[in-house]
Nucleic acid binder design. Sequence first.
DNA 1: TTCTAATTCAACCATAGGGTTGAATATATC
DNA 2: GATATATTCAACCCTATGGTTGAATTAGAA
Lengths: 121, 121
Amino acid sequence: MVELEAPQLDAVFHALGDATRRRMLRDLAKSERTVGQLAEPFAMSLAAASKHVKALENAGLIRREVRGRAHICRLAPGPLASAHEWLNFYARFWTDRLDALEGLLLTEDTLRSDACKGDDS
Amino acid sequence: MVELEAPQLDAVFHALGDATRRRMLRDLAKSERTVGQLAEPFAMSLAAASKHVKALENAGLIRREVRGRAHICRLAPGPLASAHEWLNFYARFWTDRLDALEGLLLTEDTLRSDACKGDDS
DNA sequence: TTCTAATTCAACCATAGGGTTGAATATATC
DNA sequence: GATATATTCAACCCTATGGTTGAATTAGAA
């Protein structure tokens, strides 16, 4: 589980903040897709869709393999895992399982050391 | 666990895509804060910080109680849980636990019904 | 070579985002 | 009532974002 730097988290969450790109990720969860295939469901130009693909790529959410004239995209789950992990920090706020209390007590120290680190993004 | 509509997910992920706002959430995880207290760590005007707070509020990530002249903000974990849940869909891509196979087989149906629903954002 | 297909690039446009400053609005306090 | 405090509002600025179109690039196919 790679811990992402703040700028990377920016890019990941920003990429996820658009329904078009989330839909592309869903499609990539089924199998690999070319840029054209990813663009197909949308009523927008290919150039526009291509920009969305690039945004996903910049965030590290997909990898691209150029095979001939087609660009084949695959899901790269690492940054998704990191985002998931980031959100996991707040799980104690919506989880009321009994062992959440343990987590609460443990994170008290985490919070203090995070405060010392300065940048906990 | 409330399932968020696509526009709400947009707002939530967009709100999380900014280090300033993520830092505010971290502070709110420690305890409630006024707008002024949330703004304090940042080298920006109060008006600017106030806009960030409003972005968090619009995303449903915080609740605000106006007590006298102070606005007291508290973490509202619901949307965080939904975002976490959304990411959880992709967990099978980074999890190689054996029971992930079961999840894989289960989500095959999910994918198919999602395709019929049209908007699975 | 020529034609077609897959994708990006470049220029442009409109709107949203994040910042500023100064004035406005409430609410405590003197 | 007068003043100080906490916050927002409004107007403005600059840059980023998401879209368009038309040309450029690159690689199969005829």
